[in-house]
């Protein structure tokens, strides 16, 4: 018996590598078959905790790699948020402008048509605006254009969906206007450089800071619309008139929304005035 055991031991020792391999493979296979065993689960949970502690100490490695990805993500989120904030700011400003315009609409004696400025042609001499409202919306030629700040211009051409307006800074633009304080009348005109109130005699009372409004002499523009403020008054030698420059109330650079005043010149009045003019000639 003892000899047999020794013989087995010798064989196992001679093949110890294979014996060990067989033993470990069997243990592995047994473990594989015990995968849902409760004890195995508890051992694994302990191992996971221990590894977690180790990983925590080495987390700077993953932290470094994760940081780049996180940076990219944050940069993208930042761009999206900036875009949203920009949109909100735009909406807020538009809301403010529209509120002011609604206030104007409520006060107006004439029905107003709200229009967006879809094009600007600011070329110094003949400055025009293109509006997104046309004849299908009720816009007609010679209708005045205003906004909450004051007089903008007049419609000079229109089709079904769009219209073009001469702004007050246009050499073709003329309007009767007056100094609000002293009721001195003049003709509003743009000379390519300055907005002027023409035909103001040297003896009349006009000062820097006076408010200029449209006068009731105009057949096109309702009376009392603010035009601007007198910015300078000069008396030129050899003439009877003063040179009165006006700073317009409307900021044409920032202009985005306007109202078309649905008032057309009174044809009976125009007819009479033209007839009288011909008679006098």
């Amino acid at each position: 018996m003892r000899a047999a055991l020794e013989r087995i031991y010798d064989i196992l020792f001679a093949l110890k590598e294979y014996a060990l391999l067989s033993l470990l493979v069997i243990i592995s296979l047994v473990l594989l078959s015990l995968n849902d065993n409760a004890q195995v689960k508890s051992i694994r949970s302990v191992a996971t905790v221990v590894l977690g502690l180790g990983q925590d100490q080495l987390s700077f490695i993953s932290g470094y790699f994760g940081l780049r990805r996180e940076n990219e993500l944050l940069r993208r989120v930042n761009i999206e948020l900036a875009d949203q904030a920009n949109q909100l700011r735009e909406a807020k400003l538009e809301n403010l402008r529209l509120r002011q315009m609604v206030g104007l609409k409520d006060q107006s004696r004439y029905p107003l048509i709200a229009a967006k400025v879809v094009g600007k042609n600011l070329t110094l001499m003949r400055n025009t605006l293109t509006l997104d409202k046309g004849t299908s919306d009720g816009v007609r030629d010679h209708m005045p254009i205003v906004n909450e700040a004051g007089l903008v211009g007049v419609v000079v051409a229109s089709n079904e969906y769009y219209s073009v307006a001469n702004i007050i800074l246009n050499v073709d633009f003329r309007a009767s206007a007056k100094i609000q304080r002293t009721r001195v009348d003049g003709i509003l005109a743009w000379d390519g450089k300055s907005l002027l109130l023409k035909n103001i005699a040297k003896t009349l009372d006009v000062s820097v800071g006076d408010v200029v409004i449209t006068s009731e002499y105009s057949s096109t523009y309702p009376a009392g619309i603010r035009v601007g403020i007198v910015s300078s008054v000069h008396e030129q030698a050899g003439t009877l008139f003063k040179t009165v420059s006006i700073a317009p109330s409307v900021d044409f650079v920032k202009l985005e929304e306007v109202f078309v005043v649905t008032q057309t010149p009174d044809s009976l009045r125009l007819e009479l005035e033209q007839k009288a003019s011909r008679t006098l000639k």
Binding site: L24, S28, L29, L31, L34
Partner: peptide
């Protein structure tokens, strides 16, 4: 022990 499944699989293959 730290893997989520197949206890004994890495042991077998690495052995």
């Amino acid at each position: 022990l730290v893997a989520t499944k197949f206890l004994g699989l890495a042991a077998l293959s690495k052995t």
